[in-house]
Design a protein around this nucleic acid. Structure first.
Length: 630
RNA sequence: GCCGGAGUAGCUCAGCUGGUAGAGCAACUGCCUUGUAAGCAGUAGGCCGUCGGUUCGAGUCCGACCUCCGGCUCCA
């Protein structure tokens, strides 16, 4: 048979030859360095037989940055971890151990809980394995055989995996350790030049909290020590952009144990908050939304009607009013907006009705989930509920996608869109779902947005589009959401009078575009690394008078800039110019003006963030700064 | 909520096997009169997260709780 190499030449091989055979045919060095085979974009184990006509590419230990090469390396590293743990902890059961972005993990059920300091011991055992060297062999077996092997070893998790596996069952063996595994794996452990166990965590078997919680050991591995060092450096750099750290360093906000999950916004953080609010308000008005304000506290009856009492109680804060009655803080704006819509007779001529509101929501998020500004209990969404007829859905969704694209473009942030479709348990007719899903998808298509479909992940009341962004440590957070809802208007008995002189239920679209202001600001802080663009910067211009005698003139310049609408402060502390410049730089202020004997209002000395300097007059500076506003 | 880790000055962190707490930066005071990323000196600052226990004695050992950090689950 013949296979095709990357340079389009053909290689003649005997039938049944493997990737490794192909590598040997090309050269012994290549065979030695080979780690896996890529064929038409998918990866394949070197020990797999090839098919005639197949396009092949041999990936080697020199492809140290190739994601697939790292993947296979880390997958094999995970097996070394499992072998080590099994040797050190008799009675341990092994579950699964895949490679992940930036590393790998393996889940175990330990007979006795283990502590983080024991990882060193495990690491030492792996080092010993690496020193001895391990070779992987691959074997294909049938399900019965595999189950027998693993039940003899008492590995019930593996037995369960075999039961749910599809396709051929493969086993990989290194030394005296055999694992159920799809592969691919390295030929041997030589390419693993750097390996580090990073953390210990609990993880539910099959990701289901009703199942037993296993112990997960995380680690990472590289083709060289330098690569590992670089990776650790990158992590360190990422931590410097962490919004929690920058929030304190730049004096934007703080969190207190007296109000867990509820940020205290400092004056400088409030500047950014208000800039977002201004943008939101201005655009909402342009796009036909009406701003409303509805109560924070409602009686339980309201939440029973909305379904929150049955479905969301665990996450709500209840308030004892002193008498019989209990009330609850709103976790969402929808019940209020339903009551508002229902407070008057509505005509089809009134629709769409677009209620926008960004008041405070409270959600009692579980303690272990709180996280800086990304997961809070005090939530402020740029929320809106739009009441439409079915015919208006398409245009309305379209407008929302346009809106959200506009907003994200203001900051140069990119979100990943996800379309969640009808779940098993749902309300409404299939025809309604067909139309609703089609409307969402058409809007995404029309705007040329990349999106993935999550089948069955819609809410029980309708499909939705969610927008996700990633933080500085690679964690994904949901930002904006657009949800179609046929049900809540019915629960609240909302109607409008149609052109046919009959009552109809409106459809409601729940939508938050930035998502929560808290989370969005968290993303912005990390996105800019604290160096906000001029229009968002809490302090836009700082003036540093060189000496005491320059303070009056500096104050005068500051007054002029403030009158022109800029945020200016003057650092007239009795510190050296060098020190004050350094601090301005650390505070990431976009423009620093040094004012001394050589300067005048006609000739100012301006320093850009980063160190670039130029001379300009006050009038020209005002003109320049005005162009930096959106 | 679950698993692991951590809470010492405003911030970053030292504090050994138990013997009454320390540095740098910040703050304050004085000197210097400052020119594009840290001038010099001094002073002050701590219920060692909270509560309980062991001990002659606890920052240090044990327990509970609170908060934070890394995961899991859940979510904007």
């Amino acid at each position: 048979m013949k296979v095709v190499l990357p340079d389009a030449t053909e290689l003649e091989l005997p039938d049944g030859a493997t990737g490794l055979d192909a590598a040997r045919a090309i050269g012994p060095k290549l065979a030695e360095q080979a780690v896996l085979l890529r064929s038409n974009g998918s990866v394949q184990d070197l020990r797999d037989p090839l098919e005639g006509g197949q396009q092949i590419q041999i990936i080697t230990t020199r492809d140290t940055d190739d994601p697939d090469a790292l993947y296979v390396l880390r997958h094999s590293a995970a097996h070394l971890l499992a072998e080590a743990v099994r040797r050190l902890y008799p009675g341990v059961k092994i579950a699964i151990g895949p490679p992940i972005e930036n590393g790998f993990y393996y889940d175990f059920e330990f007979p006795e809980p283990i502590r983080e300091e024991e990882l060193e011991k495990v690491e030492a055992e792996i080092a010993r394995e690496l020193k001895e060297g391990r070779e992987w062999s691959r074997e294909e077996v049938d399900a019965e055989q595999a189950k027998r092997i693993f039940s003899e070893q008492g590995e019930n998790y593996k037995v369960e995996l075999v039961d749910t596996a599809d396709g051929p069952i493969t086993l990989y063996t290194q030394g005296d350790f055999t694992d159920l595994c799809r592969g691919p794996h390295l030929q041997n452990s030589k390419p693993i030049k750097a390996l580090k166990l990073t953390s210990l965590a609990g993880a539910y078997w099959r990701g289901d909290e009703h199942n037993k919680q296993l112990t997960r050991i995380y680690g990472t591995a590289f083709y060289s020590q330098e690569d590992l060092d670089r990776h650790l450096e990158r992590l360190e750099e990422a931590r410097k952009r962490d919004h929690r750290r920058l929030g304190r360093d730049l004096d934007l906000f703080h969190l207190s144990e007296h109000a867990p999950g509820s940020p205290f916004w400092h004056p400088k953080g409030m500047v950014i908050w208000n800039a977002l609010e201004d943008l939101r308000r201005q655009e909402n008005l342009k796009r036909g939304y009406d701003e409303v304000k509805t109560p924070l506290l409602y009686d339980i009856e309201t939440y029973i009607t909305s379904g929150h009492y049955d479905n969301y109680k665990e996450n709500m804060f209840f308030v004892d009013t002193g008498g019989e009655e209990r009330m609850a803080l709103k976790p969402m704006n929808c019940p209020g907006h339903m009551l508002l819509f229902g407070s008057e007779l509505r005509s089809y001529r009134d629709l769409p009705i677009r209620y926008a509101e960004s008041s405070t929501l409270h959600r009692n998020e579980p303690g272990g989930t709180l996280h800086g500004l990304f997961r809070v209990r005090h939530i402020t969404q740029d929320d809106a509920h739009v009441f439409v007829t079915e015919d208006q859905i398409q245009d309305e969704i379209d407008g929302m996608i346009d809106f959200v694209t506009f907003l994200y473009n203001q900051f140069g942030v990119v979100a990943r869109a996800e379309l969640s479709t009808r779940p098993e348990n749902r309300l409404g007719t299939d025809e309604q779902w067909d139309r609703a899903e089609a409307a969402l998808e058409a809007a995404l298509e029309r705007h040329g947005m990349d999106y993935v479909i999550s089948p069955g992940e819609g809410t029980f009341y309708g499909p939705k589009i969610d927008l996700h962004m990633t933080d500085v440590l690679g964690r994904s957070w949901q930002m904006g959401t657009i949800q179609l809802d046929y049900q809540m208007p019915m629960q609240f008995g909302l109607t409008y009078m149609g052109a046919d002189n009959r009552e109809h239920h409106p459809v409601v679209i729940h939508r938050a575009l930035l998502g929560s202001l808290e989370r969005f600001i968290g993303v912005l802080i990390e996105h800019y690394g604290g160096a906000f663009p001029f229009w968002l910067a809490p302090v836009q211009v700082r003036i540093i008078p060189v000496g005491e005698t320059h303070r009056a003139a500096a104050a005068e310049i500051a007054r002029g800039l403030r009158e022109a609408g800029f945020r200016v402060d003057v650092d007239e502390r009795d510190e050296t110019v060098g020190k004050r410049i350094r601090e301005g730089e650390l505070e990431k202020i976009p423009k620093v003006i040094v004012y001394g004997d050589r300067e005048s209002a006609e000739s100012l000395s301006v320093r850009d963030r980063g160190g670039e300097q130029y001379q300009t007059g006050l009038v020209d500076l005002v003109r320049e700064l005005a162009t930096l506003r959106p």
